[in-house]
């Protein structure tokens, strides 16, 4: 098999924030590569700067040092070309479901009729047909996050940046949406970087898992996950699942076996 080309390469990125207690170094010389059509999960202790990485890639904040290359070309950031999804669904409360899905196409200046047709098509495909004119307030948490996912996918982003997108949902809804996500990523051939603190989720969804060390964050180790399951639920019953799970727990210094 030919190895997939490197799509995004992050090199020696540093970032410090100036707080009341002085300078806090969040990212120190962080480097990693994302392959085309990769599904990479980033796990690490809380507060280790996972969100900061996303904000740098999305162009919301500037790094102090380091560089990024996209398909070999040096870039400032991927602003306008990423699909950023956060833990909060960030639906605009004054916009209907349809209006929320249209947000990205509107900012791009896509023709209104064309955009609306596409939006309705996506909503139907994700089982939200008939909810076009509902306001976010009237929807359940899972439906809202599904709308947020459609809003992200419809823009056809180069890379999806998912920052703990399902962590505020109950377990059943999370399992369901993991399946929806995995299927959508395969249908639309997307590259995904997923930040999560859920090891179980990382193993079930990803092709690779990057473990970050505590602050300042460095890539400690990268695990390839070799499970070819049809769905995240099927992945959980794969014989290698628990092996990966325990290996990652060990990397994060979580005790999983009884000490004798």
């Amino acid at each position: 098999m030919i190895p997939a080309p490197i799509q995004l390469s992050v090199r020696n990125v540093r970032k410090s924030f100036h707080g009341k207690a002085g300078e806090v170094r969040v990212l120190d010389d962080l480097s990693f590569d994302i392959n085309a059509r990769d599904f990479v999960s980033i796990i690490g202790p809380s507060g280790c700067g996972k969100t900061t990485i996303f904000n740098i890639i999305a162009g919301l904040i500037e790094p102090d040092a380091g560089s990024m290359h996209y398909l070999g070309q040096e870039i400032e950031s991927l602003r306008g070309r990423v699909g950023y999804m956060m833990q909060k669904d960030l639906l605009f409360p004054w916009r209907t479901v349809l209006g929320n899905v249209l947000l990205g196409l509107e900012t791009r200046g896509v023709d209104r009729i064309e955009a609306e047709g596409k939006a309705r098509e996506y909503l139907k495909a994700f089982g939200l047909g008939g909810f076009e004119n509902a306001y976010p307030k009237m929807l359940s948490g899972g439906m809202r996050q599904r709308v947020a996912l459609i809003r992200t996918l419809i823009m056809d982003p180069d890379i999806l940046l998912l920052d703990e997108p399902f962590s505020a949902l109950d377990y059943q809804t999370r399992l369901y949406l993991e399946g929806v996500l995995k299927e959508a990523v395969e249908t639309y051939h997307k590259t995904v970087i997923l930040v999560t603190h859920d090891i179980d989720e990382a193993v079930a969804l990803s092709k690779r898992v990057v473990v970050l060390s505590g602050r300042p964050a460095r890539a400690k180790i990268v695990h390839d996950i070799d499970i070819a399951a049809a769905s995240p639920i099927a992945a959980r019953s794969d014989s290698r699942f628990s092996g990966y799970f325990h290996a990652l727990c060990a990397e994060l210094d979580i005790q999983t076996e009884k000490t004798t």
């Binding site: 919301l60 070309r81 950023y84 956060m86 909060k88 960030l90 605009f92 947000l103 900012t107 940046l161």
Partner: peptide, 20 residues
Amino acid sequence: DLQSLLISMGASKHQVFFKA
């Protein structure tokens, strides 16, 4: 956060102002 989301989508300052 709503403004950040729009910026990540590539929105201009005017768009952030009028949409968010």
